[in-house]
Nucleic acid binder design. Structure first.
Lengths: 131, 131
DNA sequence: CGGAATCCGAGTCGATACTG
DNA sequence: CAGTATCGACTCGGATTCCG
């Protein structure tokens, strides 16, 4: 084994600017469209059922909500609990790890809310300049 | 100009949880894979040429870098300056608006660096449980 | 050097229909 | 209620080629 084979660098050296670094996958996933909204919503509502969540996150299809929740569950950010009643009840909530993402993601959504008017204006200017 | 022309609603009314809200497009764009890295890199390096940026952001293709930079320019986050020398030189840098995104995005990348090991571990556990 | 244009496969998205 | 299945439209992203 040479010095370049399978070397796992300490966490602090995980550099998302290097191709193939796992943190890049993670970054990509947590920044994705629906994940941001689902985490935000689970954060402010607490434990929450599928349909409730679907209504809260406007415009998400069943498929994408399921897919997003599965990925978040797999990544340890969301806990899925099945209550075997009749009819069956399933609740989703953030794990402790998921909770730590709320701050960063809220900063991002707040930025987009505060600055989307400026972005839209910039787009208009760009269109006027370039056609 | 009447009272209904060019009314900018108070920012707090733009809700990314509502389908069709423009802030959602913006949020999606600024959270996208390459945009996060490009903004981060432009932020710490300052004005920067295309090839330099391409090398700094490992694994990005010319096409995606071009596309990302165009979108960021269109959205008013990046300024593109052409110096008509020979050979031609083009520099990219963050606008004032782009600068305001550095903090939120850095928080996100730092989270992914600090927690990707935990996420990877969760994935391993999930695989073991479900197959 | 700094792109633009094109091709193309792989993957994503979303609507619809169906199931336990 | 909480999904799964399927399918077409669309997009992503790499490779290649060409331009000023």
């Amino acid at each position: 084994m040479t010095s370049t084979d399978n070397v796992i660098e300490p966490t602090s050296a995980w550099d998302p600017y290097s191709r193939g670094c796992p943190s890049r996958d993670v970054l990509d996933q947590i920044g994705s469209k629906w994940a941001v909204l689902v985490i935000g919503e689970l954060g402010r509502r607490g434990p929450c059922r599928f349909t409730e969540l679907r209504q809260a996150v406007g415009g998400v299809s069943e498929k994408m909500l399921t897919q997003t929740l599965r990925t978040l569950e797999r990544d340890g950010l969301v806990l899925r609990t099945v209550y075997p009643e009749a009819p069956i009840r399933v609740e989703y909530e953030l794990t402790a790890l998921g909770q730590t993402l709320r701050g960063p993601l809220r900063a991002l959504t707040e930025w987009s809310v505060e600055n989307s008017a400026a972005v839209l204006a910039a787009r208009e200017k760009y269109r006027a300049k370039t056609g």
